[in-house]
Computed example of a mutant assay.
Amino acid sequence: MSLIITYVGNKGCVMAGDKRSIGFLGNKEQRELLEEELYAGKIKTTEELHKRAAQLDINLKITDNVEKVRNLGDVLVGEVKLRTTLETRRKRIYGTSSGYHQIELTGSEIKKVQSGQSSIVVFGNRITKEIANKHLKKYWKSKTSLDEVGKIFKRIMEDVAQATPSVSQQYDIFIIHPRLDHKQAMELLRTTIISDVKELEKWREKLKQEMLEKTRDIQMASRILTQGEVGRVKKVEGDEVEVILSPGVEALNTKWDTLASAGETILMKMETPTPLSLGDLVVIEDENLCIKKDKTFLSCDIILCKSS
């Protein structure tokens, strides 16, 4: 969905990137047909995109707040992503004065590196690259300052956004001009990439852990007891009631750690102290925790679940 344009010269680096992301939800063949028409330039506006998506029964999720270009001090970074059901592939360019690296990653593993000292590099789909390269030839001058490059990039980003809905009207643009020779640039880029990819690896591990925890939360939540027998009264003292858990019932804390298993005792409280008998049945009825015989309401600060 992207357009990222990078200029690297001996006096600095200029990088611009649009902010659009489009999600396609629906039949795989229809999605691929819509993407092909979009990338071939057959769809010119966002309105046409929505109309064609409706014809193909595809739901779209369009956002214009994605950060595709970043400033890491003396290095600029641009990234495009390709997500599949199994992995995320990334293509990045790291640029500074007198040097750049293009890298391709699968997950957080570097698969390919391409380097250079000066260049203009365009990332994008077929139609965005075609339009951007055409306009670069049209606007470029043999001697161009970094500020002029920035103005050209702004103009190209706006021109491309007028021609295809695959990029947004919104974009980010950065200009840096550290004083570096090619050797210094290569060393700076090397250390920056190592650090940046390590951060990506940490982020991916954190995301993986959060997803595992969320999956566990969903699995555990399905075990919460909402109806049925909980246990029997063992002891009553004031408003406090000790209850022996019935077979198939256990008590957990909010981290899903087991506090008491079937046959063990937990403490509950009566909202209104009422005479109870030992062995009275404690149940959950209509999501209310109570004594079955007289509906005396009880409360506890633990989670009652079916045993796994």
Rank of each mutant, 00 (worst) to 15 (best):
K269W: 15
I152S: 05
G248Y: 11
N71A: 03
I4N: 01
V149S: 05
T63A: 11
W203I: 14
I156Q: 03
L25K: 10
S108E: 10
Q227F: 15
L60N: 00
K183Q: 00
V149I: 08
A40M: 13
Q30N: 15
Y100Q: 00
E36Q: 15
S166V: 13
A16N: 03
T63G: 11
K214W: 05
I194W: 07
Q114E: 10
G238T: 14
G78P: 01
I93A: 12
G238S: 11
G238D: 12
L76F: 02
T258Y: 07
E187Q: 06
L298G: 03
E87K: 15
L86Q: 15
L146T: 02
K28F: 09
S308V: 14
I291P: 04
S168P: 04
A185E: 00
T128N: 06
L180P: 00
R52A: 10
G99Y: 00
T88P: 13
I194L: 09
N10K: 01
R92P: 06
L189Y: 01
E104C: 08
M211I: 06
K129N: 11
D147I: 03
K151V: 06
I43Y: 11
Y39W: 13
S2T: 03
V69Q: 06
K293G: 05
I58S: 03
K19Q: 06
I176T: 01
I152P: 04
V149F: 08
G279K: 07
S118K: 01
D301K: 12
D181K: 00
V160F: 03
D286S: 15
K51A: 12
V241L: 01
F24V: 14
K61T: 13
